[in-house]
Simulated scan of single mutants.
Amino acid sequence: MNMRRLTAAALFGLPFACAAAGLGPSDFRSLAEPAILYDAPSKQGKPLFVIQRHTPVEVVVNIDRWTKVREPAGSLLWVERRVLAEKRTAIITTARADIRQKPEATAPLAFEAVKDVVLELTDKPADGWVRVKHRDGSTGYIRINQIWGL
Rank of each mutant, 00 (worst) to 15 (best):
P34A: 11
E112D: 10
Y141H: 13
L109E: 11
A10L: 12
E71D: 07
P103Y: 08
P15T: 07
K115Q: 15
P25S: 14
N145H: 07
P41C: 05
R143A: 13
L121V: 05
C18Q: 08
V79R: 05
R70M: 13
F49P: 05
E104W: 10
K46G: 00
E80K: 04
G128Q: 07
L77P: 01
I51Y: 03
N62V: 11
A95K: 12
I63Q: 11
R81G: 06
P15K: 06
A95C: 00
G74M: 02
V50C: 13
R5A: 08
G45R: 09
K133C: 11
E86N: 10
I99R: 00
K102P: 00
G24P: 11
R135G: 07
H54L: 15
G149R: 01
V83W: 01
R70G: 01
T55E: 15
M3V: 12
A8M: 12
G13E: 03
V59Q: 13
T7L: 14
G74H: 04
P72S: 08
L84F: 05
W148P: 04
V114K: 14
V79C: 07
D27F: 01
L23M: 15
A32F: 00
R29A: 08
E86G: 09
Q146A: 12
A90G: 05
R100V: 01
E86Q: 12
V118D: 06
G137Q: 09
Q52S: 14
T93N: 03
P15D: 04
A9F: 14
V118C: 10
W129F: 12
R70W: 09
Q52K: 14
A107Y: 07
I36D: 01
L31E: 00
V57L: 07
E86S: 11
R88H: 11
K68I: 03
I92Y: 02
A95I: 02
T94M: 05
W148K: 03
E58R: 15
R4P: 00
A126V: 12
H54D: 15
D127T: 06
M1Y: 09
R5I: 00
R96H: 09
A85N: 13
D64G: 10
P34Y: 03
V83Y: 02
G137P: 08
L119I: 05
A97E: 06
L109W: 04
Q146Y: 09
H134E: 14
R135C: 11
G74L: 02
T106L: 13
L37Q: 04
I63N: 07
A17H: 03
A73V: 10
D64P: 02
L23N: 14
T94K: 10
T94G: 04
M1A: 14
E112H: 11
L150P: 03
I63W: 02
D64M: 08
D39K: 06
N2F: 06
A126E: 14
A21M: 14
P41V: 06
K68Y: 01
K102D: 10
R29D: 08
A35D: 00
G128V: 05
G24I: 10
L84W: 02
V117M: 13
R96S: 13
V61P: 02
K68V: 05
